[in-house]
Amino acid sequence: MKLSSEELEILKIIEENHKVPVETIALMAMTSEETIQNTIKKLEDEKIIMSYPTLIDWTKVEGQENIVAMIDVKVTPKRGVGFDEVAERIYRFPEVSSLYLMSGAYDLSITIEGKTMNQIAAFVSEKLSTIENVVSTTTHFMLKKYKHDGVIFDSGADDKDRRMVVSP
């Protein structure tokens, strides 16, 4: 679907921060609040805007830390449906937070979150590996999150404003 430059502008603004109020977006994009509301409604209806999640650093919240693993999966594609059928069987599990079809040495890349390593191990051995057409799995546990969706975690001094208060 081809979007107008105004629609693109609105998307760029809320991609950065979906908490910007309608009136502010209207000022930034030089259009009316009504246009903003209608455009966003339209983009939501078209499923171009999918959802408005919030990026949370759970490692800072006691008792809420998750264990994250990325799993490379080799599968045998099925005639007629390719990888879609097996992908669907996998993404339906709520513990799967992302799933991509990849080029290269393996086929599917899964991100999975759990409370303990045992939970993830159980998922791999009991659920994932037993799916028909799944040939092999390789599980990588994530040790530390530095950057996610363009956001740097614990950026330290990087985001500090070091400019002089007044300059010519």
Binding site: D161, R163, M164, V165, V166, S167, P168
Partner: peptide, 9 residues
């Protein structure tokens, strides 16, 4: 809050 800065943020 400075709006007096003559350089990019």
């Amino acid at each position: 809050i400075s709006l007096g800065v003559g350089e990019p943020d």
